[in-house]
Structure formats: structure tokens, C-alpha cells
């Protein structure tokens, strides 16, 4: 009988620490599947973020480096410039990539570093207890916006992917979501494209993944998926940005 489904080699067989309904586990797996399919496990180097996915290297079964909060793309730049033959990617949340690390993000992109960025947007800081993220929606309640995000106090949700799309150094930006099986498949193909671009020396590629955080959205996993579909996507429309 032909084997059509198995555990990815690049993913260790251990349970993750993520909450029920969290998108990180799915995103980790998609990356592992892509790494396997592209046969790059022995030359990939991942940069783990600070945030809920801080121990992503416990789950991936390939070389990884830690990075300080927001500095993943600087670390990745250092690695890739020294080892251009390796495939280097960062895995970053919204706070990491679009708040404390905005400078690193924009300049690595603008230099056109030949890197792959997997950007998890769940509109909230998870690890620290559900505070406002740069991508928190207007009206959304968080630990630091107890009355909801207000434009006059907190500004608008930051559209970092659209901003990056304007830069000449960037070759590929796509926003995908994990709220339904079909969307997950699309997310995987975007991730694959972003890795392929690097393998083909095309330059900076980023995939923004809308991902659920039921815990700090204070919803059930099911409600969280619906919220992405019905609310979040209106602010962060899916599709190819560049």
C-alpha cells in the first residue's frame, strides 16, 4: 500500500506546549513539511523568536539559533552572509517583527537579504499575557487596551506586510491564514514559495500568517477561527501583496 501521509522528518515527535486552538503548531508543521519536501533539512537554519514560539527549536529537528526580541533578521543576516549556501529563515510574531524589531525588519528587507520570513500575526502578545500588539484590531480588548484599542490613543493596526511590499529589496510578500483546511494548504504553498525564492537566490520573501490565539482573544478555538474569517481578514485581507 502506498504511503501518502507521515510525520515530517523535520518535526520532532513530541507534544508542543501551545494552547488548544493555537496556530503555532500548524505553522511549525507546515515549515517542517516544506523543509522535507524541498529536501533542505541538512542545510536549513532557523531563527527562533522571543514570544510563544521561543522554543520552536525544541520542535524542529534541524539547526536553529535563538535571537533577542526583534533581532531575528539581524541574526539571520549575519548567518546568511557568512553561509550563503545555507537556507536561513526567521519565524517571528507580530510584536517581534513589527514593534520591537521594525527597524531590523525594514532594513533587512530593504537590503534585499536573501532570507525567508515566516510572520505569525495573531493580533496580540501571547507569551507576556495578552497585551496589545501592533496588529491588534481597533476595538479589540487586550490586557493593555482594557477598553478596546482606540485609534486616538493607540493608533491603527500596523500593516507591516503592505509597507514591506513597497520596498525594492523585497521580492515576495503574501498574507495567508490558518482558519480553515483549504487556507492551511494555501499557507503551505506560500511558505514553499518563500523558501524556493531563497534557494533560487531571488531575495527577501515574507509570508504573513493570520493565526488564532483563542486564549487571549478569550474565545473557544472554534470561535477564534470564525473571528479570523469574519473580522480579522477584513483588516488584513488575504492574498499576494507583492
Amino acid at each position: 500500500m502506498k504511503k501518502i501521509f507521515s510525520h515530517p522528518k523535520s518535526l520532532r515527535k513530541i507534544p508542543t506546549h501551545y494552547c488548544a486552538g493555537c496556530g503555532h503548531g500548524i505553522a511549525h508543521r507546515l515549515i517542517a513539511e516544506v523543509v522535507d519536501e524541498l529536501n533542505i533539512r541538512e542545510k536549513v537554519i532557523g531563527i527562533a523568536p522571543v514570544g510563544c514560539a521561543v522554543v520552536a527549536y525544541d520542535y524542529w529537528d534541524f539547526d536553529c539559533c535563538e535571537s533577542a526580541h526583534g533581532r531575528a533578521l539581524a541574526v539571520a543576516t549575519g548567518i546568511k552572509r557568512c553561509r550563503p549556501e545555507k537556507v536561513v529563515f526567521t519565524y517571528q510574531g507580530d510584536g517581534d517583527l513589527a514593534a520591537i524589531g521594525t527597524n531590523e525588519t525594514i532594513h533587512a528587507a530593504n537590503r534585499g537579504e536573501n532570507l525567508t520570513v515566516i510572520f505569525i500575526n495573531n493580533a496580540v502578545y501571547g507569551m507576556t499575557g495578552g497585551q496589545m500588539a501592533p496588529t491588534t484590531l481597533v476595538g479589540q480588548k487586550t490586557a493593555t487596551t482594557p477598553y478596546g484599542r482606540k485609534v486616538n490613543l493607540h493608533g491603527w493596526p500596523l500593516k507591516i506586510s503592505e509597507i514591506l511590499g513597497l520596498l525594492k529589496g523585497v521580492v515576495y510578500v503574501e498574507r495567508v491564514s490558518l482558519h480553515a483546511p483549504l487556507e492551511v494548504l494555501k499557507a503551505k504553498s506560500a511558505i514553499k514559495q518563500a523558501f524556493l525564492n531563497q534557494i533560487q537566490n531571488k531575495g527577501f520573501s515574507l509570508v504573513e500568517i493570520l493565526s488564532a490565539c483563542p486564549t487571549y482573544w478569550q474565545m473557544s478555538p472554534r470561535e477564534a477561527l470564525d473571528w479570523i474569517k469574519e473580522v480579522m481578514i477584513k483588516e488584513f485581507p488575504l492574498g499576494r501583496i507583492k
Binding site: 539581524a74 541574526v75 549575519g78 531590523e104
Partner: peptide, 8 residues
Amino acid sequence: NMVLGASA
């Protein structure tokens, strides 16, 4: 942090 990467 770039130096950290290069060193790693």
C-alpha cells in the same frame, strides 16, 4: 546581532 549570527 548580526555579529551574533555570524559567530553562530
